[in-house]
Each structure stands twice: as C-alpha cells, then as structure tokens.
C-alpha cells in the first residue's frame, strides 16, 4: 500500500463527499413539511449505517494484518542485524550480526533482498528513521525514542542507494539530519 493509493482514495472520497454535499444543498427546495421528510431521511440513514459498518469492518480486516508489529517481533531470526542510533543531528550504524555488512558509522552497506532487522534507538531526543528509495518514495519508517529500542524489519527490494531522513522533529537541524544506505 502506497502513499499514492492513499492520495487517490482520499481524492475520490473527497469528490464524492463534495458531490453529496452539493446534492443536499440543492435539495432544500421545493419546501415540504418536515414529518414526511424525516421518515425518508431515516430510511437512507439505516441503509448507510449498515453499508458503513460493513465497509469499515472489511477495511479493518484487510489492513490490520499488514501492520508491521508482529513481523518485528517474529521469532524467525533475520539475516542481518544492525543497530541504528539517532543523535542530534546524525545517524550512526553499528553491526550486530551477519556477514557482508559494511558499517562505517555514517554509511551502511547491506545486501539487497535480505531480511534486515534495525534496532533503532536514540541517544538524546525523539527522532524518526525514514527509509526512502532513490525515486523518493518513502518505503517505511520507525521512531527512535530515548530509553526504548524499536525493532524494524525490512528487505531492501533492489540494489541501489536509499536515503534516510529524520521523521520526527528534533530541533535546529532536523531538516538536515540524513544519511544513505547502499544495497548491493
């Protein structure tokens, strides 16, 4: 599921809402006594209630399983473990396990297609570890919080350069806190 889908879905929904609003606004005339009208509105409302309930339940059913939490806690070991620490205003990588990992504190090189587990934490304030591909799509993210370690699992789909931006406001140079990951 991508941000583009979210945008299209919202746009279509917003246009639909606007159309319905227009129809309601135009329906104010001709005038009719309230008593007959109310029953009609309530009939539509009952149908809407049922439809909305079904749609919401369906969306919950479809989307909740895609939440990242259970994968992050899975007992299956990842191929590679990397520790990530956010500082004001840089990222630092440390290898925990796995071969073929090249770690310089500022620059990480990992194999594409392998399951990587990032253990993300912060050395000072809250930061956000956001992974972008070279076409600027935000692929996934997790927060870096002092006192906690957030485990994020990700498989880099293809070799290339990935950009890391900070996704939680962290003060003066928040907009400059970035680094890259190379997948090969």
């Amino acid at each position: 599921m991508t941000a583009l889908n979210a945008g299209i879905f919202t746009l279509v929904g917003a246009l639909l809402v606007a159309l319905i609003a227009l129809a309601i606004a135009l329906s104010s005339r001709p005038e009719q006594p309230k008593d007959g009208v109310t029953a009609r509105v309530y009939r539509v409302r009952r149908a809407y209630f049922v439809v909305l309930g079904v749609v919401l339940l369906a969306c919950l059913g479809l989307t909740l399983p895609r939440a990242p939490y259970l994968a992050a806690r899975s007992a299956v070991p990842p191929d590679i473990r990397v520790a990530v620490t956010g500082w004001m205003w840089t990222w630092r990588f440390d290898a925990i396990s796995g071969d073929r990992v090249l770690v310089e504190p500022q620059n990480l090189t990992i194999p594409a297609g392998k399951l990587i587990e990032f253990s993300v934490r912060s050395g000072d304030v809250n930061h956000g570890f956001g992974i972008y591909d070279d076409q600027d799509h935000l692929l996934t993210q997790v927060q870096a919080m002092p006192g906690y370690t957030n485990q994020l699992r990700y498989r880099f789909p293809a070799p290339g350069v990935y950009h890391i931006l900070c996704m939680e406001y962290c003060g003066y140079a928040h907009h400059l806190m970035m680094t890259t990951i190379h997948a090969e």
Partner: peptide, 26 residues
C-alpha cells in the same frame, strides 16, 4: 461540516496502520 467530513476521511486513511508507515510525519 463538509470540510470536517473530508478532513475526517483523510484522517481515517492516516489512522490505517499499514498506510501510516508511509504517511506518518509527512
């Protein structure tokens, strides 16, 4: 009220965990 409903729709989209991974703090 119309604007509130449209904003609400965008909020519901963002409150979907699977989408929040690409929308959060954008």
């Amino acid at each position: 009220i119309t604007g509130w409903v449209i904003g609400g729709l965008a909020a519901v989209v963002d409150s979907t965990i699977a989408l929040n991974t690409v929308l959060h703090n954008t």
